[in-house]
Amino acid sequence: MQPRFFITFISQLFFCQIIFGQVFSFTTQENGQDIQHRILMDDEYYVETQFTTKPNQFIKTIGGFYHKKGNDLMVALEFNSNFSNDSIKHIEINDQDRWKEISKTNLPLQGKWLMAGRVNGNQERRRDTNRPRKTMKILVDGFFQWIAYNTESFSFHGTGGGSYTATDGTYTETIDYFSRDNNKVGILLEFEYVKNGMDWHHQGFSSKGDPLHEIWTYRIP
């Protein structure tokens, strides 16, 4: 079997599978303010984000690979938006009894994706997805979140998330939280998307109204 054929075969087989994922939510209170906790997770990765809706305000986000220890989840963080204040790189999750599942449905593009480059004109400009500075987008059961971060320095560069749909080549995001500009909450963004092997081409306009054509590649692991 030729290497190129083998890679194509594996990628086609992979995208025919249903990727496990679940989305949960719970609410806590701090100083009389309701804080929404949204959790996106698959069988190896955990992301939790805190935000408020009255007013719309991003609070924090954490995420990384996890393993189970009894009923607990042990998470080795890749990012922590509050790292400069708390220096936390590992967490233990044991409050699942208050989680409420809010998963919608398994949609196209479900999984974890890394920003792999952009297209300017007809020219692709790729980036090394193995470098510490990453932008990852995780899509689980109708919800999405992107995070820009550095796995070595733990510097945090922004995040945004909400709900999404993907139908007949049209990908739509509705923003529920955005660390860079709380005023963007509620905005609906529509893009064209095409999957090409392990790549996802994402074309449209950013939340600032700038044209973009991004290339995302599926993250393994």
Results as ranks from 00 to 15, higher is better:
G186L: 03
H157P: 02
S25V: 04
S11E: 12
F191N: 10
S25D: 12
E44Q: 15
M74A: 08
F24W: 13
K208V: 05
N80K: 03
F51H: 03
N82D: 11
V194S: 00
F144H: 09
K134V: 00
R127D: 02
R131P: 00
E101P: 00
P132L: 05
S206K: 06
W216Q: 00
E214N: 11
E190V: 15
E192T: 14
Y164D: 11
K54Q: 11
Q50M: 12
D176W: 15
W99H: 00
S11K: 12
P221R: 09
T61I: 13
T165R: 11
L40Q: 07
K68S: 14
Q2H: 13
T61N: 04
I10V: 14
F58N: 04
Y66G: 09
R133C: 07
I187W: 11
H90D: 11
M1A: 13
E173W: 04
T105A: 12
G121M: 04
R180D: 05
V75A: 03
A148L: 01
N182S: 09
W146N: 10
I138M: 15
S206F: 02
L77D: 00
D72C: 06
L107T: 10
I18C: 07
I147S: 05
T170W: 05
I175V: 13
Y164M: 02
I91E: 05
M136T: 10
N182H: 10
E44N: 13
E192R: 15
D42N: 15
G21D: 04
N122D: 09
E124C: 08
D181K: 03
T135K: 14
E44V: 14
R127W: 04
S179P: 07
F154R: 01
G197W: 10
K69I: 08
I10A: 06
Q110G: 02
Y164I: 08
A116Y: 02
G64H: 01
Q50Y: 13
Q36Y: 09
K112N: 10
P221V: 06
E192W: 09
I10M: 14
H202G: 01
N182E: 08
K195C: 06
D141Q: 15
Q203W: 04
T151S: 13
G161D: 01
Q145Y: 04
Q96E: 03
T28R: 04
K100M: 08
G32H: 10
W146G: 01
T165A: 06
D210A: 11
C16G: 15
H67T: 10
F65R: 05
Q2E: 10
T159V: 06
I18N: 12
Q36L: 14
S153Y: 10
I62K: 09
N183S: 14
D168Q: 12
Q123D: 10
K208L: 13
N85C: 01
E192Q: 14
I7Y: 08
